[in-house]
């Protein structure tokens, strides 16, 4: 089974042997990849007990819990890197979750769907309808946002954007330190590498 491009991109940002917490780790696919390729100490937090059980069967350590309320069980700096992959827009309180991640680990990787992409802007402008697929009330994203929104929130929380990369049709572009305006205009999804 070939790994997802965004997973490979996240793996590339993580040093070998790091202590990694994946929040919303699902069945542990990314953590499994990290353990095999980087030898990291891999831990996960997952809301679904079925998915957490699958991560257990991979030999991963996973705590079933809710990122909105349970991140406080992790002490300050108990990890080197915290990952929040395609989950921050599903949180009830994204600012709280992001600040918790910055407390738990000095480096944070966060990926999300970018509402700032131009066809989405155009849809709202031209049709007056939300660009949330398939329907705005079906979307599991409670807090849709743009790449610029997220960089701004991170800055308010004391987190610096070290690098950012676009993900389009499953292909990850280069990580760059800058070019936010263009990224915000064109990227389908975005991966941000934040640090304290």
């Amino acid at each position: 089974m070939s790994a997802r491009a965004d997973h490979i991109a996240i793996v590339s940002r993580i040093p070998a042997g790091a202590r990694v917490l994946d929040v919303g780790c699902g069945d542990g696919e990314l953590l499994g990849l990290l353990r095999e390729s980087k030898g990291v100490d891999a831990r996960g937090l997952e809301l679904s007990s079925d998915l957490a059980g699958k991560a257990l069967a991979r030999g991963l350590s996973v705590i079933q819990g809710d990122a909105d309320s349970d991140l406080d069980i992790f002490p300050d700096d108990s990890f080197d890197v915290a990952i929040l992959s395609k989950a921050i827009q599903q949180m009830r309180d994204p600012a709280h979750v992001l600040s918790q991640l910055g407390r738990i680990a000095p480096e944070v990787l966060v990926s999300f769907r970018n509402l700032g992409r131009w066809p989405r802007r155009l849809q709202l402008l031209s049709k007056g309808r939300m660009p949330a697929p398939p329907l705005w009330h079906d979307s599991d994203a409670l807090h849709p946002c743009t790449a610029s929104d997220m960089v701004s929130l991170a800055r308010e929380l004391g987190l610096t954007t070290q690098a950012m990369a676009p993900v389009d049709d499953g292909v990850v572009g280069k990580f760059r330190n800058g070019g936010l305006v263009r990224l915000n205009w064109s990227a389908d999804e975005v991966i941000l590498h934040l640090s304290r």
Binding site: S49, L56, L60, S61, V62, I63, G65, I73, S78
Partner: peptide
């Protein structure tokens, strides 16, 4: 069980916890 999980995490122990619905 979550309190025990919290203590094990604080102690740096390798811990998993699953709550079955």
């Amino acid at each position: 069980a979550m309190e025990l999980t919290r203590a094990l995490v604080a102690a740096g122990v390798d811990v998993s916890h699953i709550e079955i619905e």
